[in-house]
């Protein structure tokens, strides 16, 4: 069967070649080239920050700090990964710092998480017509933001990186400082929980 995530990450259809030209220009100090990169990725970075922090004001700060940090550290960008993946790493770290500060306690991402309890799906129902047909883009985005916000930080962060920003399992483990098995078990549990939560919007017979 086809992997669930068959789609290319770059939904804005911007050629990677063009991206490397912009990155090179920005590295040489061209602020307008960097601004073009910001324009390209600001929506995704803002969504990532919003999903992790669950706070609009914090998300704005995170996006701003992440782009600024990226510009200041462009010389360290090796070009081994995509610029976007590198940017995501910076943004996630900023978002987690914000989250910890806001909660005034350690939001631990390396705590032992029990994965066996409540992992079994509760309701198994067929879904009705394609959710994209049932809801507008805005309604769908709001539903997705709401359900991901109901997950605890260790789970929503892993899901965000793996299934929305499409980092590999290894990259996700590295960025979050947790083991590969921990990424896998949290991802499984996140996917199952989100499926359960989306049931209430998408199952057949739910009125629009």
């Amino acid at each position: 069967m086809e992997p669930a995530r068959a789609k290319s990450i770059d939904t804005q259809a911007s050629p990677v070649d063009n991206e490397s030209v912009l990155v090179a220009a920005a590295r040489a100090g061209d602020i307008s080239a960097f601004e073009a990169l910001v324009t390209r990725y600001e929506r995704k970075i803002f969504r990532l920050a919003q999903h992790i922090t669950q706070n609009t004001e914090d998300a704005q700060d995170v996006a701003q700090e992440a782009f600024l940090k990226a510009f200041e550290h462009l010389a360290e960008f090796q070009g081994n990964s995509r610029f976007y993946t590198w940017l995501v790493r910076i943004a996630v770290n900023q978002a987690l710092m914000k989250l910890r500060k806001r909660h005034n306690k350690d939001v631990s991402l390396d705590e032992e998480v029990k994965t066996e309890d409540s992992v079994m799906p509760r309701e198994i129902e067929d879904w009705g017509p394609s959710p994209e047909e049932r809801y507008t883009q805005r309604e769908l985005a709001e539903i997705l933001a709401r359900v991901i916000g109901e997950l605890d930080p260790p789970f929503r962060t892993v899901f965000q990186l793996r299934d929305i920003d499409e980092l590999s399992t290894e990259e996700t483990a590295e960025v979050l400082g947790i083991s590969v098995p921990a990424v896998k078990s949290r991802l499984l549990r996140s996917r199952l929980k989100l499926r359960d939560k989306l049931n209430r919007y998408f199952q057949r017979g739910v009125p629009q």
Binding site: A4, W127, A141, I164, R191
Partner: peptide, 18 residues
């Protein structure tokens, strides 16, 4: 099927314009 759709919906969703 529905877990696969869950991943696809998130993966395919476009972030809203700021």
């Amino acid at each position: 099927d529905t877990t696969k759709k869950t991943i696809q919906i998130f993966c395919n969703s476009e972030p809203l314009p700021l």
